[in-house]
Design a protein around this nucleic acid. Structure first.
Lengths: 124, 124
DNA sequence: GTAGATGCAAACGCTTTGCCGCTTA
DNA sequence: TAAGCGGCAAAGCGTTTGCATCTAC
């Protein structure tokens, strides 16, 4: 993959974020460094970075897709209802190992948990 | 809210489903009973039924919004990766009561859990 | 020098809205 | 009969694509 100032700015904004970013957020943050940054460039760069394994998509219920660095590992997210920001969490309170079969015959491979509430700044 | 055959068919298809349905699924199922059922009618009926408290939206990560009867109570969903169907689950393996404060100062009000894997039919 | 990347604008797909004729109460 | 509803088509809006230009390698 070719190194350009646009992609550097895009990947940099994702890496330096406190949680996963939406396309609009990436465009806003990277756009501070690259004036006239096209939204299509963001979409294309995000797609390329995903295929390259640099970043992963984070889909949260009822939210537009967000993206974060791929090397973070299994974790979940906290979504602040006051400010709308999404944060990474370290905890995983879901005790369902891969391969578990639930009543009804559902074989679990994976799970996604999102917590909702108020972040420290908004709670104050 | 006025009683029409379209809305009866739409609410009926949601109530009789084995899990939450997408707009397209509702349109397909209700459309079997009501030929020429417009997609806009489905959107408008779903919106009205939501405001009326009859149904609730079910947002799953990376999926289009789905809708199910409102009187089902707290539960989670299982998403089959093979057939794409979503099913209601009875279990809730998340031990985080409302009001819990997580490291980082996040106050939890609510949570959403989605399990992924294969349903009984697809596993066979 | 050339394949790949960018910016712009048009195309696209899903959702919403406007309009007008029809239906329910 | 009158307010609400349904069907159709157009408008919106976020995402994707085409194309000509530019740039990293």
């Amino acid at each position: 993959m070719r190194q350009t100032k646009q992609r550097n700015a895009i990947l940099g904004s994702i890496r330096s974020a406190e949680g996963p970013l939406s396309i609009a957020q990436i465009h806003g943050r990277a756009g501070e460094k690259i004036p006239r940054l096209g939204i299509a460039t963001v979409y294309r760069a995000v797609k390329a970075l995903r295929e390259d394994g640099e970043i992963v998509a984070v889909d949260l219920p009822g939210e537009e897709p967000r993206y974060e660095a791929a090397d973070i590992g299994h974790h979940h997210h906290f979504c602040c209802r006051a400010c709308g920001q999404t944060y990474d969490l370290g905890v995983c309170p879901v005790g369902i190992p891969r391969g578990t079969m639930l009543p009804g015959g559902y074989t679990v491979e994976d799970h996604s948990l999102t917590l909702y509430g108020r972040c420290a700044a908004c709670e104050a």
